[in-house]
Design a binder for these strands. Structure first.
Lengths: 154, 154
DNA sequence: CTTAGTGCAAAGCTTTTGCACTGCA
DNA sequence: TGCAGTGCAAAAGCTTTGCACTAAG
């Protein structure tokens, strides 16, 4: 069991919860696909390869648990599906979810927190609202698709 | 029929669609509540007061239509419900959805586009991604709740 | 008149829940 | 061994769809 899973076991123990094979496999499925944004059904299909008897309800129960534990992040990319991705432990709690969604190829890119430097402070000064978390989505065209678009229009 | 509804009628005609009492009432329900974020069910309940025989399916079909026509905006405030609000005609197409959600009182506040000045350009320069629309949510504490929190902790 | 739009009910999906059985601690 | 966790199936929501009827243009 690697570091991530040992850490997970400790976190579970701290909550008085048990470490099950199912929980390990579900977390591994997401941890092994850091760039993907998976639906519950997709996670179910992946996990079934290693543990065919797992029930969809178990997947739902555990992605909810993992989300509560902040080990995975819940995403809404605007396509009508609820999706999940492994949380980046380097990111401070409450600072995730920055996606650029290409309207042409559907690719989902992430961008760094640093681009928002000063924005939360600006909001606080202007509106009095103190930001503790945020979720940002930008729709547009990725570098490649934008290039194609520009070429076609010229 | 006021300006908004006459405009709506023209837009429908341009699409070869008919103006029905139901459509007018649904749009009015949202137009008359510019600060609210209503679910399909809530819209249904409001509309039924004026047109008791309306079916829920008609509400769903028409909020989808209104959304396609950019007369209303679809929101996801993170509470598990899909919500709708009247679109602000002053805002340029593709620039809406800026909400601050108070984690204490649940209040949803809006903030202006101007706070994001330069951000899209910054993204383009840094990542090559050309932004054409965005949806931003900030979770935190509104001025009033933040004040109470600060008082209690001092 | 023509055909888009409506209301109703049924169907479809995703997600949750109840319950007896299983297996971790 | 005790109780949390699981698998299964049923239930619960929300949303969409099929169809006969209605009404807008």
């Amino acid at each position: 069991m690697n570091d991530r899973m040992e850490q997970f076991t400790l976190l579970l123990k701290a909550r008085g919860l048990k470490t099950t094979k199912q929980r390990l496999i579900i977390l591994e499925a997401l941890a092994g696909r850091p760039q993907e944004h998976l639906t519950a059904e997709e996670i179910y299909d992946i996990v079934k390869e290693e543990w065919p008897n797992i029930g969809l309800a178990t997947v739902y129960r555990n992605i909810q648990l993992l989300s509560d534990m902040h080990l995975i992040d819940k995403l809404n990319l605007g396509d009508g599906y609820v999706r999940y991705e492994i949380a980046d432990p380097r990111e401070e709690s409450g600072h995730h979810h920055h996606h650029m969604i290409c309207l042409s190829c559907g690719k989902v890119l992430a961008f760094g927190e640093d681009l928002l430097d000063g924005l939360e402070e600006k909001i606080r000064k202007t509106t009095g609202f103190v930001v503790s978390d945020h979720e940002l989505k930008f729709y547009g065209y990725c570098r490649e698709c934008e290039q194609k678009r520009t070429e076609n229009n010229s």
